[in-house]
Computed example of a mutant assay.
Amino acid sequence: MHFIDQPDVLAPFVEGNRSRAFGAGLDPFAYERVTGALRSLYDWPAAFRAVGGRLVEDAERYAAEGRTVSAGEALRGAARWLHVSTLLPHPDAAAMADAARAADRAMGRALALTEPSAVRVEGASFAGWLRRPAAAGPAPVVVVVPGLDSAKEEFHAVAEALLARGVAVCAIDGPGQGVMAAALAPRADFQRVVGEVLDALAGRPGVDVSRAGVLGLSLGGYYASVSAAYEPRLRAAAAVSGPYRLDWEGLPLFVTDTLTRRCGGVREARAFARRVDLTDTAPRIGCPLLVVEGGTDDIPGVTGGTALAAAAPDAALLSVPHGDHLLGNCRPEWLPRTADWLTARLAPAA
């Protein structure tokens, strides 16, 4: 049985994604209205895409009236809603890919209106946006890496927190994520993707790649950790709700179904899950590492980040006892501290 076909799965999925949706910036009242009208998870993608589409229409009307700020805000909202429409392991892969592309376009249009200094950065294995702080001079840069079913459009608050502290941000979709999901399967050796991003950033105005860090969320926490172990240019890393190890047999159906669809088959998904294991990698992490965990984030089949914090040579653990997965229910208790921690470690050498 596929995840979406389980009986009585709608209500738990709506509840389980509530704090994640709010953390991504969706209006909570709109989320309740949209999800309250659903009769099946099969209807989730279209319902969320409809909100995104209406926001795009609003943006076009605002732009025609010369209201650039309102147009940009509406397009950012559209990007969020369009992305959240893709969270399910839905059988209509073409519709999921269309929504991911629409989210990417909306974010690009929003940045063009409100932040024209933002630059599209692409490579063979990634696509993203480089955003630089207002202060003059080369800034340190953090690569923001999403997780299994997330994308660069989800973590606006993370990017804004770093930009406010004078740090440039390159938020990306890598293999299996966002606009790259239809073309490339997830890969466990994500240090190669981060290396490609740093190569693409080198020499760009306003960016000091010698002061580079990485911040990964959910499965992106594993990606950040493995990159910190094998990409020597990284000076600091943060892993938020990231796995230390995956056990396929224990994983919930949502995770195995999502992995199967994004990897291209059960055999490929199992092979990928086996490689998500930091047991031998954690001791190799040579830069400072911050591990951020929610105390209520207990996913079957997933060994959490506490083990990573214990195994990495220079690691600190920030645990919020009531935090859930991605800590969307307690952002003020981890995001400012994480942004400050990264900023301090990417500061110029004394």
Rank of each mutant, 00 (worst) to 15 (best):
P7A: 07
L10M: 10
A11S: 13
F13C: 04
V14L: 07
V14G: 13
E15L: 11
G16E: 12
N17D: 09
R18A: 14
R18I: 03
S19E: 12
S19Y: 13
R20P: 07
R20S: 11
A21L: 01
A21M: 02
F22D: 14
F22V: 12
A24V: 03
L26W: 06
L26C: 08
P28N: 05
P28S: 08
F29K: 15
F29N: 15
F29D: 15
F29G: 15
F29T: 14
A30Y: 07
A30G: 13
Y31R: 09
Y31V: 13
E32T: 09
E32H: 11
E32A: 15
R33N: 11
V34C: 12
V34T: 15
T35L: 04
T35A: 14
T35K: 03
T35S: 15
T35Y: 07
R39N: 13
R39P: 04
R39H: 12
R39G: 15
S40Q: 09
Y42S: 11
A47S: 14
F48V: 03
R49Y: 09
R49N: 08
V51E: 13
G52C: 03
G52F: 05
G52L: 02
R54C: 05
E57R: 10
D58N: 10
R61D: 02
R61A: 02
Y62E: 01
Y62T: 00
E65H: 08
